[in-house]
Design a protein around this nucleic acid. Structure first.
Lengths: 197, 197
DNA sequence: GTCTATATAAAGATAGAC
DNA sequence: GTCTATCTTTATATAGAC
């Protein structure tokens, strides 16, 4: 029932993003999406070709492609490079919480839609992988298994905001985004053995 | 089509666990569960009272309640205590990958079923929280925000095995469970500033 | 306790009018 | 490009026979 100023295709995409994030892909119906978008049910098929295609279009149109990959010379200093990358990913998860929630849901489900998600997310992980390799070569990062180190960095970069997990344990608390990013980055760097304390 | 030797209630629960883990709660139908369990469709309603109740029963019956909480004197040495807890959680995620996958899916969805999941999972996080507090008091752990530190420890303990995330980046690799647990624990301890290098 | 048969609702998708 | 109306399938759940 929002963004009535936009054209229908975009309204459908934004509504799908909102509902997929809140209820998951399988928990969201095409009817719901169209209701939210103030669009007719038939338009999803007409404009996109079905629910699956809406999901794809969502990433094609709304994923912030280049932001993180345009940065040159990331590999010059692995520690600073890692700082930049992790900060960038966290910035994305805060800027578009819905899309980042969808990414994580699909990862956890290991659904068929992973193919689409990975297409957009892998370039970032590839950069992080390079940073880890370079850092290990130079002796600033210390870990046994590269794939597992990468997994830990990814998970910490993405899954920092699932506060529902602990809200019962911190009834009055709230997380401050600025502190969040810095603390996560420094945690990762220390975890990787890059001495910073 | 397995475990035909068990009684029907348990067969339904095990089939539900398997399918929820693979396809998610919303992506799994009662029909599918009964087919997998070699049971009649009507039996889910008769024995449990519906799909939601099957989910609940799954945790009530199959969640390893006490394993981690019986350990006494965990707080004597926060570093060793943390080592024990994280190892324990990782052991659980490996022992029952299906159940741990379900836990993570529901966390990411922030579904209505979180209430059930948290009931079983919170006691563990509560212990970890205590360890973090004690460790910070004693000056062995260093972090700014307790809730966020807790979140990072939880995430690393749970989400270490989503290898689908990076399998394109490591075509031939495989993760070794033993190394996994140790590397994760040490990563966490270093991340928390407990000097171990 | 287990089955068949069915009730009822909701899903995704499209034909055809406008 | 958008709508109404409808098709088909599938969902959860249950009544009632056995």
């Amino acid at each position: 029932m929002e963004h009535l100023e936009l054209d229908i295709k975009m309204r459908i995409l934004l509504s799908a993003k909102k509902l997929f994030a809140r209820q998951g892909y399988d928990g969201t119906s095409v009817r719901q999406i169209c209701e939210e978008a103030n669009a007719n049910i038939a338009l999803v098929s007409y404009h996109f070709g079905g629910k699956e295609k809406v999901f794809e279009a969502l990433f094609v149109n709304l994923f912030p492609h280049k932001d993180l990959l345009d940065i040159k010379d990331l590999l010059q200093d692995p520690v600073e490079g890692m700082r930049t990358m992790v900060h960038g990913v966290i910035k994305f998860t805060i800027a578009d919480k819905e899309l980042s929630d969808i990414v994580q849901q699909e990862i956890m489900l290991e659904s068929n839609r992973m193919k689409v998600v990975l297409e957009f997310v892998n370039p970032m992980w590839s950069k992080v992988k390079q940073l880890l390799e370079k850092g290990k070569e130079e002796g600033v990062f210390h870990f046994t298994s590269l794939p597992q180190a990468l997994l830990m960095v990814i998970n910490l970069s993405l899954a920092h905001k699932k506060t529902c997990l602990i809200e019962k344990l911190f009834p009055n608390d709230e997380l401050v985004p600025d502190i969040l990013a810095d603390q996560t980055v420094e945690f990762i760097l220390r975890g990787l053995g890059a001495v910073k304390r």
